[in-house]
């Protein structure tokens, strides 16, 4: 018996496996690197531009590293008279829309999950169908109605419109999250005398926290990045958002100030990036909930 061969067997096997994996790994790593570069490249370029002077931002040949390095563009953004108002509006619309969507979506998702009723499938498909109507197709009629009612540039109306956009997905997501909560827990609460409202508030919601985080995150990102709703339905400059102000800079009739615009774009993305970093754990847990059946 070749003991040395036996002794080295598992190691040789591991080496072989590593070698085989290494063979597959290289192209995979190259692909991952290329994708990362494609995604990060424009962001890094934007960051670099934001740290350049305006003259250097359009210099030819361009350089990735800003020289001289300046934070003046960021200071200019914060010094912008409308920045705080635009930021506040962005926060109010995004948070407000998500709260309203959750207030609607939680009972609807619960009902869809727990109560059998006639036409349930049709109702759920109709809810889903409403999210498939392109928002642009509704712009003119909605504008006409709001104008006639004197409701243009109204914060509550903007929140309601944005909430309506994310409500269908909220209902569907929440239904599937609530489906994953064992019915037995609810039944024992019912025996204890809890009402449906109490069950939803005190039992279901805490158990689907990751799901709520996922739904809220998707909702915040969708509404935060919305341009057209606010641009059309909130013509008052005191009601516009960071995104509207950002797009207005593209149409600036004295040309685009690239370094300022990049600084503005990065600052206006930060709240969502920070929020995502904060709720990332819950968000991923929410998205993967129910992915593994046991």
């Amino acid at each position: 018996m070749n003991y040395s061969a036996l002794a080295s067997g598992p190691r040789a096997h591991r080496r072989g496996a590593r070698g085989a994996l290494g063979g597959h790994r290289l192209p995979l790593l190259a692909l991952a690197g290329a994708i990362t570069l494609a995604v990060l490249g424009p962001i890094l370029w934007g960051l670099s531009t934001s740290l350049k002077t305006e003259v250097k931002a359009v210099a030819v040949p361009p350089s990735l590293l800003p020289s001289p390095l300046t934070f003046q563009n960021y200071l200019n953004v914060f010094a912008d008279k409308s920045f705080v108002v635009d930021l506040s509006n962005s926060v109010i619309y995004a948070v407000g829309a998500v709260i309203v969507a959750l207030l609607v979506g939680i009972p609807a998702g619960y009902a869809a999950s727990r109560f059998p009723f006639r036409g349930k499938k049709a109702v759920m498909l109709t809810i889903l169908g409403t999210s498939m109507v392109p928002g642009v197709a509704l712009l003119v009629p909605t504008y006409y109605i709001l104008d006639r009612l004197g409701l243009l540039s109204n914060t509550a109306v903007i929140v309601a419109i944005l909430a309506a956009r994310i409500a269908p997905q909220t209902v569907w997501f929440l239904q599937s999250f609530i489906d994953s909560v064992p019915l037995e827990i609810e039944e024992s609460a019912l025996i204890d005398g809890a009402s449906r409202f109490q069950i939803v508030c005190r039992l279901i919601l805490p158990l689907i926290k990751p799901g709520l985080a996922a739904v809220a995150t998707i909702g915040i990102i969708t509404t935060w990045n919305d341009y057209i709703t606010v641009a059309v339905f909130a013509p008052d400059i005191a009601r516009r958002t960071l995104q509207v102000t950002l797009v207005n800079q593209v149409f600036d009739s004295v040309g685009i100030s690239w370094s300022y615009m990049m600084a503005y774009a990065i600052i206006s993305s930060m709240p969502v990036i920070l929020m995502f970093a904060f709720v990332q754990k819950w968000f991923i847990a929410g998205l993967t909930a129910g992915a593994v059946k046991g």
């Binding site: 109010i92 709260i99 309203v100 207030l103 109204n154 914060t155 509550a156 903007i158 929140v159």
Partner: peptide, 11 residues
């Protein structure tokens, strides 16, 4: 309460 406050804020 937050949602109600928001509505008032708009109006």
């Amino acid at each position: 309460a937050a949602a109600s406050a928001l509505c008032l804020l708009g109006a």
